[in-house]
Design a protein around this nucleic acid. Sequence first.
RNA 1: GUCGGCAUAGCUCAGCUGGUUAGAGUAUCACCUUGACAUGGUGGGGGUCCUUGGUUCGAGUCCAAGUGUCGACACCA
Length: 944
Amino acid sequence: MELASKYNPSDVEGKWYQYWLDNKLFSSKPDGREPYTIVIPPPNVTGVLHMGHMLNNTIQDILIRRARMQGKNALWVPGTDHASIATEAKVVKKLAAEGIKKHDLTREQFLEHAWAWTHEHGGIILKQLRRLGASCDWDRTAFTMDDVRSESVTRVFVDLYRKGYIYRDLRMVNWDPKALTALSTEEVIYKEEKSHLFHLKYYVEGLTTLDNEQQLLDEGNTIHRDDRGYYAVVATTRPETIMGDTAMCINPKDPKNQWLKGRKVIVPLVGRVIPVIEDRYVDIEFGTGCLKVTPAHDVNDYMLGKTHNLETIDIFNADATISDESPLYVGMDRMDCRRQIAKDLEAAGLMERVEDYTNKVGYSERNPDTAIEPRLSLQWFLRMQHFAEIALRPVMEGEMHFYPQKYVNTYKNWLENIQDWCISRQLWWGHRIPAFFYPVIATVTAADAKEALKLAREKSFNRDLKASDLRRADDGDTWTFDMEEFVVAPSLDEALPLARQQSGRPDMQAADLRQDEDALDTWFSSWLWPVSLFDGIRQPGNAEISYYYPTSDLVTGPDIIFFWVARMIMAGEEYMHTFPFKNVYFTGIVRDKLGRKMSKSLGNSPDPIDLIDRFGADGVRMGMMLSAPAGNDILFDEALCEQGRNFNNKIWNAFRLVKGWDVADTPQPEAAQQATQWFAAKLRIAAEELADDFAKYRLSEALMTVYRLFWDDFCSWYLEMVKPAYADGKPLPMDRATYDATLAFFDTLLKMLHPFMPFITEELWQALYDRQPGESIMHAQLNVEPATDADRDRVAAFDEAAQIIAAVRNTRTQRNIPPRQALTLNIVGGDAAKELPFAQAIAKMANLDAIETVATKAPASASFLVGTTEYAVPLGALIDVDAERAKLQAELQRLEAFLQGIAKKLQNERFVSNAPAAVVEMERKKQADAEQKIAAIREAIAAL
RNA sequence: GUCGGCAUAGCUCAGCUGGUUAGAGUAUCACCUUGACAUGGUGGGGGUCCUUGGUUCGAGUCCAAGUGUCGACACCA
């Protein structure tokens, strides 16, 4: 067989992936074997592969392939996420480019566009994963909005509603004014920002003179006054919200502001008179201690509003332009308004001063340029207390393991301070909330119109309700108005009888029901993923869910520990009564080699497919894994892919060497026999190390273990030791015993490498022996005998031999003796009857013509110590006595310093009496060895 | 602000319950091309284990404080 001297990945990768597909080698069905399951963290359906996916999916593939080769029934389930906000935003943008506004379309029309977009762009990422070698069972590819998953989501919603965990309420939510939807607290990202703190003048109403001004000043009040009168100073970063001010608040214990108690102040520009209220919430130290209260636009102000029964004026529209509730700036964008009002306040002399200020502003995770706006709105919530409790247990009790473990703390912390989950989103792309509304005429009882309106608004959650919407009944105290009530059911068909019953109107028709317009948070479907993939919601206890659940490992980023991991544990415990995965492996964030996050604007994010084209999938996989300890950020450097590619080339060339040998039925040379025995032992020990690395999820170390085993032990040592000699410019044939052993070693090595580098290992494994059609390394079993003590002894003995070889080579290098010039090795003062282990191998590797035991070495020798044995290489005329002496002197000095340290330790009585006997004994042995070495070196120097 | 992680060779990281002269990969330097591979071979150099104090016969490892750094959470008018 002719093989190119360089490995070319593109020749083999596509071929073998197709072979795996054609032979259904990724597929899994429940059977009698132990299952090993991974569910993919579903990437956004319209996403494209980035470096984070590369890392994440490489790890999953390594774990899956390893499990498969251990004889487990390995299943990796792929799929995509509908990513409601992200996808809807993309579709809206695309439509906008075509001049179509979302709200000019009906829901159905919009969804048609969204599905078209999904079908066009969807699944690209899954195709890209194939280039990486991902061994997913593609026949099972799922989508969070396919029929099974959608129905599961709906059922879960209905179930949780009936269990009383889901409720509807008017709350201050994080509003994304661009996407026009509420967000959960986890979807808000706070960024520090340079802004301004505006100090505004709120004149005190009707106060022209303060009789006891001096006394108040003496008591510590800070009183502001100008020719227009007395005023309070309020510091704010958001002057545009003053139109919504309905109070000013001071801390009752604030000595600076006692004079304002019980007064009323005038909102600047607006002219509205608002009360001064008192609440301990106000921080005395901050600013002037005067806080403007805008209940509609700040979470804390909202609380104050509730406590103090304040009016709520919502001055923003949903898109954060100024609403007609505001007396000023109607229709203006909030940011423009901030600039304008600052100017106007300045011009009106109502701005005392402006200072620079750094504060944190929340931004939408999905629209990173859009500052979120706290907004009162009616949303659906999931009560989290129960879920926090059931999700904490399996992690704290060690049923589930996190790698790295530090995330247990993060997890615990979040669960213990959990807030209810806002699950509704004002989007169309997603799972529509299965709540069905029907109109009713409601009543409230109140003595006057104002009270009635307030009660009616509370009852209907409708802040837009106006006094004219209320109808007073004849008795005077009863008011009626139109509102809606709802039922929750999986479908319209099931909703109708419920609604008839609930309303007491048996004549109600389907057309009378109106389904909630909102969709559910994307994570409300993702949290069911490990269950819904096996249809465990719709068909509890089915064969698949019973077999594959709980899954084995989850591989994901720590950034979604709350969004996703925690919630999957909740859903798993709720619906399966047990945790969804045994182990969670948190990967780090992929950064560039300077430690910066990958971003489009920095242009430091390589295209994974381009990398695969250049280095091969195996090379890139190795590049990812080389620097990826669990949980640490990985600093990605193309140089690592290069290293991966080089390793592929090394494997390839080792194969070329082995397959190039001629075989003959000749006796096995002693050196080769020693080498095979040693490598067999080394292989068994390495396999144990590898297993240990995997057991601890130290995958980059596992890779390094195999890397060194292959390159150093197999190529640099073993192959060199067994390589046939040359005669007449041609290699001699190799004996069959060594050849067979070498092929067997190669076979095992390929299997150990396969999870990391699936393509090249398949290519070579297929070529190593004759294989059956449809056979694959993927399903070959990695069975390596356990290592024995004899193996460890042999490996230790070889380490000494390797040191001797290195020392002889060093002797050559330092004296410019060519490798081809054979040398003789003397074992000085040794027992002539005792054979040096690996003598033949040493002779071959160090190019020695003889190894002799001598009583005293030749005077013109280079000498060195391995262990406590002195070795010498007679150099004859090649000797440089001065250089030799200098070398020995340096070694002597080093050893003497070392000996001194030990002697000091051993002279310390407290050490001798306190340290364990074994430790003291070890020190004594070190001392004796060092003394022996020193004596040997002294002799060597004298002999020169 | 609260809590947590980390700090070891130029770089990226191992180093377990304290006990050989602190390791690996990579980079770097020198030498080496007829014989699998220059995407290679052989050999070398390179460390005040962040600082200070403590515990101990003994500290990279344990404790405390400090410095730096990263992260989570909370508040921020």
